[in-house]
């Protein structure tokens, strides 16, 4: 079981392997929140996770706020980094994304607007260390 656990990774390959393991533990209706500073690997992790479902064109949704993908399943990739007010999230129908029990939602920078996040969620926290290694922590909230 990857969730809950914490891992120190030293390469992209190790992050990619964690993403491959992680997707075995998620299913439709899950909301996955990815927290961490810029450049810590959140988008890379999502990109590698979604490769497992046949999705190859994942880019950062920082400017679009949300991208939708259909492969072996349905996925929403959201990013709260550029969102300034919580009402902007209601204006894009955030509830409808999280209420979609047929889709898995990945939310980068979700901690910026924790009020909109469902209580039941998985959080993946990324931390860049001074020696350029990364800590990746998986936590489940029920």
């Amino acid at each position: 079981m990857l969730v809950p656990s914490i891992h120190k990774v030293v390469s992209e390959e190790q992050t990619s392997n964690l993403a491959d393991e992680f997707v075995k533990e998620i299913s439709a209706g899950d909301v996955i929140v990815l927290n961490g500073e810029l450049g810590t690997g959140k988008t890379f992790f999502v990109k590698k996770a979604l490769l497992n479902f046949g999705i190859t064109d994942v880019n950062s949704p920082t400017f679009a706020i949300v991208n939708e993908f259909e492969g072996k399943g349905k996925f929403y990739h959201l990013d709260f980094y550029r969102v300034e007010k919580i009402n902007e999230l209601y204006d894009i129908g955030i509830e409808d994304y999280f209420n979609d029990k047929e889709a898995i939602s990945f939310v980068e920078w979700g901690n910026l607007f924790s009020d909109v996040l469902p209580k039941k969620r998985i959080e993946v926290n990324f931390k860049l260390n001074q020696d350029l290694t990364r800590d990746i922590e998986f936590k489940r909230y029920e």
């Binding site: 919580i86 910026l112 009020d115």
Partner: peptide
């Protein structure tokens, strides 16, 4: 009915 406080 969603006018929550901004939290950042």
């Amino acid at each position: 009915l969603k006018n929550f406080l901004i939290k950042k």
